[in-house]
Each structure stands twice: as structure tokens, then as C-alpha cells.
């Protein structure tokens, strides 16, 4: 698993893939390599995009090429899996009240649990930022307890407000912009993942850990 595959992408990127199946261990290797590349001064490096099982290394083709970038990245291997001990922890407030949780009833029904039990399971779990993807600030939080894992809806629902906390399979996500989604919305957070701080515009780094703190709507 620690010997990833390298695939050239167009004229300006290399995809480094650790496995084809998602697992916590694989993602921790991706994040460890992401950190290692970010620390190393690779010539012509433009950006690194970590995902669940692979990461994309984007380079300036006027300065380097696929062969050189692969060599530069290989020199950083093997990596030790990223551990939570070095990660920053964030606690996000969340309100599960009815109007913020349009799918809570359906999730409870699908899982054969009471709504309170779903809330209890969701708010007591510990999550890890596996990657950002899709849209600005969309951080995929791994760690939804198995008891409340539900598949995506068959058709997306439009105009889901920013700050919605939603789940699909093992992933949880707090939205940052109004978007359609097929995920189940179970709460609302006032947390700003897009911070507005130019020095640190996004709240999490990949690998950070996250938990939720239930609040009453008056505190929202």
C-alpha cells in the first residue's frame, strides 16, 4: 500500500495513487505524502490536491516534467501514516432543530433508531478531514458511525442553505454555499469554514479532527 502508482496527467500533473478502495489507512498515507510534498521544495511545483486514495501533483511544464516530478515525489517515500496526534482539533457547534434538519426523520427511520439516538450518535463521533472537494470549502469529514450511515438520495434537492450539516455513507459535510445536494441534512452549524481571514481562508487542513457540540437554536 505504501508503494503508490504514478500516472501522468495531461502536460502538467502527476496522479499519485495509493489504492483503489477507500480506507482510513490509505487516506492517512495520502495526507502524510501531501504534507511531505508541501514541506519539500520541489522545482516547478504549483499545487498539491489531496483526495481520499490519491493526490494530484500539479506542476509548471515550462520548469519541470512528469519524470522529474515523479522522481522528486518518490524520494519522499515511504511515508508514515498521518496520525491524529499531530492534527489540530476543531469543535463545531450544531443545532439539530426540526427546521434545520429536514432529513432527520428519514435517517432515523432508515436506521431503525429514534431521532434522538441519531443525534446522539452523530454528535458523539469524532471525524477526520479526509479531503476538500467539489465546491469551495467542502471538507469531507470521515467518521459517520455505521449505525447512522445512509446512502445518497436518488435525486438531488435544490437550494440547500449554507451551514447545512449533512451525511452520506461514512462522510459528513458542512456546506459553505447554497447548492443542490443528494445528501441527508441533519443539522445547521454557525461555524465558518471559509473564515474570511486572508491569512487562513479555510478553517481545516486535511488530516484535522472535528467533533460537534450540540447547541440550542437561541445560540445559533
Amino acid at each position: 500500500m505504501n508503494a503508490p502508482q504514478f500516472k501522468p496527467v495531461a502536460d502538467h500533473a502527476v496522479l499519485v495513487e495509493f489504492a483503489s478502495e477507500i480506507s482510513d489507512d490509505v487516506n492517512r498515507l495520502v495526507i502524510a505524502l501531501d504534507h511531505a510534498i508541501t514541506m519539500a521544495q520541489i522545482k516547478g511545483l504549483q499545487e498539491v490536491v489531496p483526495a481520499l486514495v490519491n493526490l494530484l501533483v500539479v506542476f509548471d511544464p515550462l520548469e519541470t516534467d512528469h519524470v522529474q516530478v515523479e522522481k522528486d515525489v518518490r524520494s519522499l517515500l515511504p511515508v508514515s501514516p498521518d496520525s491524529d496526534a499531530q492534527a489540530t482539533h476543531h469543535t463545531l457547534d450544531i443545532c439539530y432543530d426540526d427546521d434545520f434538519s429536514p432529513d432527520l426523520v428519514a435517517v432515523a427511520k432508515a436506521c431503525g433508531m429514534s431521532e434522538d439516538a441519531v443525534i446522539q450518535a452523530h454528535s458523539s463521533a469524532r471525524y477526520r478531514v479526509g479531503m476538500y472537494g467539489f465546491a469551495p470549502g467542502y471538507a469531507y469529514l470521515a467518521g459517520v458511525p455505521e449505525a447512522i450511515q445512509v446512502p445518497r438520495k436518488t435525486a438531488p434537492v435544490r437550494d440547500i442553505p449554507a451551514g447545512s450539516v449533512m451525511i452520506a455513507g461514512p462522510q459528513c459535510l458542512a456546506t459553505t454555499i447554497v447548492m443542490p445536494t443528494g445528501w441527508s441534512i441533519i443539522g445547521r452549524t454557525p461555524a465558518k469554514i471559509m473564515t474570511g481571514n486572508p491569512d487562513r481562508p479555510f478553517l481545516f487542513d486535511v488530516g484535522d479532527t472535528v467533533s460537534f457540540n450540540r447547541i440550542r437554536r437561541e445560540a445559533l
Binding site: 483526495a51 486514495v53 493526490l55
Partner: peptide, 10 residues
């Protein structure tokens, strides 16, 4: 469906 992974312009 493959695991969600990075996309490039192009």
C-alpha cells in the same frame, strides 16, 4: 463509481 478524486481543467 471510483473514489472521488482530483479533477483538472481539461
Amino acid at each position: 463509481s471510483i473514489p472521488s478524486e482530483p479533477i483538472l481543467r481539461g
